[in-house]
Amino acid sequence: MHGPPDNRENANWMDTESVARRWTKVYPTVLAYVRSMVSRHEDAEDIVQQVALAILADDAERPAVHHFNAWVLGIARNKVLQYWRDDKYKRVVVFNSEAVDRLAAFYLDNLPKHSRVTEALEHCLARLTQRARHLLELRYVRDMKPQAIGERMNLSSRGISVTLCRIRESLRTCIGQRMQQAD
């Protein structure tokens, strides 16, 4: 009589439930990383979905738990590069592969702070005027580009871009102050 094999002794193995749990935690960072380079929302979401599928497919390649986040961001990096190589998208690309890697490292380093940044951002968004939040809502929820917003309002897209730029800079400053206070 003998007992069942114990897969937990294998350091390179993660079961599907563990992968799902870790993916849920790292997902916002992966999405943010991809969105930081791929400005079209739908394309970014497609890429993240491909990352999720790749993670589930590569069960034999799953790394140990402490390498999981780096592994996932590496897959995301490859998917983004693949997306840029795909002729059908014809996107403007401003990154070389070194910059893509450095950005991945930046997001990996900032992963522990992600929820704090989100909390600080929620606080700072509440301090915006409701009208400024409406503008952000048009840009980020309705996915309207500055030009589209400008055309609809009969204003210059330059004016919209400047306003969006200033709102985001005010939020960046506010987030920094908020996190400094928390520290």
Partner: peptide
């Protein structure tokens, strides 16, 4: 800067 951009996106 992209953290702010993606953060707004996520929150909103």
């Amino acid at each position: 800067l992209s953290l702010v951009h993606t953060g707004i996106h996520r929150v909103l």
